[in-house]
Design a protein around this nucleic acid. Structure first.
Length: 588
RNA sequence: GGUCCUGUGGUGCAGUUUGGAGUGCACGCCGCCCUGUCAAGGCGGAGGCCGCGGGUUCAAAUCCCGUCAGGACCGCCA
């Protein structure tokens, strides 16, 4: 037997017990006549006291991260030496025997919480060491708890876990596919799934009725703090269900996952329409943990003589306490607004003159007294605040101010609790392309809102058509999205026609799904959300790399394994592939 | 495809604005001392392609150009 228990679990009541422990040397304090070790295993840390006359003089050689096995006894620490910082701080283990199971080179960076500040490439190159740090241990345990809670919740809700394939046909929709060459069919390729979307709909046709999966998804798009090439999705689909049914199931599962980590079940998920989210927060994934909401100033400037405000929309935000921001700070905000598509950004400092708030800005001279007063009232601006105004197309004004609001006001990830929110009534189409075709906001199988079907007809306002799509949002992160799917071939053909997808093209792209739907597809609806993001929020991390054991850098590299890299010429030949030099044309 | 930020002994940072000897701090590492520390302490020591390449200059960590790596963001992610 290697050990009788775990280091981090020992407490005062264990005093007197004989124990065997095994773990790593997290710290060593050599006093010559006595040596203290902090012995770390998966459960935590306990202090070991080693007397060189008992365990041997070689104890002085032992360094950080050596692997030790200790036989000894737990004892209460002497008066005055209890360490209240440590869960095991009331006790220590007196070593009767000490065995070196393995030596270690000195680690290239400190494996403590201070290691958080270390260059991330170094951490990733030695991820096996980084994982020994308490925060990484804790994060992976949060992740495991979330996965387990989701599985249990979905099983209890009578869902069937079904695996879907990783090697699938490429469909030219959505994100860029990762692609795998076929050896048995040279020149042909599989795609790795962006999501199990089409398969889960096939499972509904297949009579599974309630499916879920914790599925790996892959998208060859640029990486971000909240995006990796490969990520895990909680994926679910239900037959004979509407949007309310799905939201209830998902809300229950997410609630169970949160409870598994925090110990407390969150209240019911609140709701907001997409339109309200855009108007109040300038985002379809609003962070509702703080104010600074967008205010429509159309009324205030309805009759304005100021050219810049004679626009389809004039909106503003009030930034509390930023009224003394330097000119260079303000100029940077203007540049930021322009880079986001705004024609310009009007800023005003709010100062106090004889007890009343007064606006100071290069453009104030263009505004009437009444406009200034109404503006201050509309924004609730107080002395010391900074007012930012964008005029232009409503979409642009909302987007620009929504981003500035986050830049200037967003709290740290671990503040304000988890504010879960369903964003509902998404539009079916997000824009009209230059060729006159609508651009789908979700995917082409999304069911329109039944009240808006008439607007799909010739001459209808397509951008006003709502869909039965819904997003789950938490603290400004899009956790996931879902929708009621179209199950009726006639309506599906109508949507394809609007999108400019002919019958032949539809057959080529999604033929297998359309074929399946001719055999009595049940009405169905579903949802998927990113587990990495939920875990990051629960772990208080700004970056999902902190909750993934072996993540990739922003350029898609793995500093640990060296991926991606070249492959053997023999492998290429077997796959019927040839690499051409950069810049040379493809050979046919 | 684009914008911005970062790169200095093993680690984290000063130094770069205003060019003047690899100058400094903390940790780690090595040696010696040390029986109650807990990021142990004391004394001593080693350790540098200032990411890389080019340019300007009498002189470059510092200025300029390029490049590589990393990060944040925009585009992209139906």
């Amino acid at each position: 037997m290697m050990r009788t228990g775990n280091a981090g679990t020992l407490r005062g009541e264990d005093a007197g017990a004989a124990v065997m422990l095994a773990g790593w040397v997290a710290a060593r304090r050599d006093h010559g006549g006595v040596v203290f070790f902090d012995l770390r295993d998966g459960s935590g840390i306990v202090q070991v006291v080693a007397d060189p006359e008992v365990v041997g003089e070689a104890v002085h050689r032992i360094g950080r991260e050596w692997v030790l096995r200790i036989e000894g006894s737990v004892r209460a620490r002497p008066d005055g030496t209890v360490n209240p910082e440590l869960p095991t701080g009331e006790v220590e283990v007196a070593a009767a025997a000490l065995e070196v199971l393995n030596e270690s080179e000195p680690p290239p960076f400190p494996l403590t919480e201070r290691g958080d500040d270390v260059d991330e490439v170094l951490r990733l190159r030695h991820r096996y060491l980084d994982l020994r740090r308490p925060s990484m241990q804790a994060n992976l345990r949060v992740r495991a708890a979330v996965n387990q809670a989701l599985r249990r919740s979905m099983s209890e809700q009578d869902f069937v876990e079904v695996e879907t394939p990783m090697l699938i046909a490429s469909t030219p929709e959505g994100a860029r596919d990762f692609v795998v060459p076929s050896r048995l069919s040279p020149g042909e390729f599989y795609a790795l799934p962006q999501s199990p979307q089409l398969f889960k709909q096939l499972l509904m046709v297949g009579g599974l009725e309630r499916y879920f999966q914790i599925a790996r998804c892959l998208r060859d798009e640029d990486l971000r703090a909240d995006r990796q090439f490969e990520f895990m999705q909680y994926d679910a689909e239900m037959s004979f269900a509407d949007a309310e049914d799905v939201m209830a199931v998902v809300g229950e599962a997410v609630g169970a996952a949160i409870e598994a980590v925090t110990g407390a079940r969150p209240g019911p998920v609140s709701r907001m329409t997409w339109h309200e989210a855009m108007e109040r927060f300038g985002s379809d994934k609003p962070d509702v943990r703080f104010g600074m909401e967008l205010v429509d100033l159309g009324e205030v400037f309805a009759q304005t003589g100021f050219r810049a405000f004679q626009a389809p929309a004039v909106k503003g935000i009030c930034v509390p306490g930023e009224g003394e921001a330097s000119r260079s700070t303000v100029d940077a905000l203007v540049e930021r607004a322009k880079s986001l598509g705004a024609a310009g950004l009007v800023w005003m400092r709010v100062r106090e003159v004889e007890g009343t708030p007064v606006l100071e800005s290069p453009v104030v001279k263009f505004l009437s007294e009444a406009e200034q007063t109404a503006l201050i009232a509309a924004l609730g601006a107080a002395p010391g605040d900074l007012v930012l105004i964008v005029a232009g197309e409503r979409r642009v004004a909302n987007h620009v101010l929504g981003v500035l609001r986050l830049d200037l006001g967003r709290p740290p990830v671990n503040e304000g609790g988890l504010q879960l929110l369903w964003v509902v009534d998404f539009p079916l189409f997000e824009a009209i392309a230059p060729d006159g075709r609508p651009v789908p906001a979700h995917h082409p199988f999304t069911m329109p809102h039944p009240d808006d079907l008439a607007m799909l007809d010739e001459g209808g306002d397509l951008l006003a058509v709502r869909s039965q799509a819904y997003d789950l949002v938490c603290n400004g992160w899009e956790l996931g999205s879902g929708s009621v799917r179209i199950h009726a071939p006639a309506l599906q053909q109508r949507i394809f026609a609007l999108l400019g997808i002919g019958a032949e093209e539809a057959q080529a792209r999604f033929g297998f799904l359309l074929d399946a739907f001719r055999f009595g597809a049940p009405p169905h609806a579903g949802f998927a959300f990113g587990i990495d993001r939920l875990v990051a929020l629960l772990a208080g991390e700004e970056n999902i790399r902190e909750v993934i054991a072996f993540p990739k850098t922003q350029s898609g590299a793995d500093p640990l394994t060296g991926a991606p890299g070249p492959i053997d010429p023999g492998q290429l030949a077997e796959l019927g592939l040839a690499i051409r030099a950069r810049g040379t044309p493809p050979r046919r």
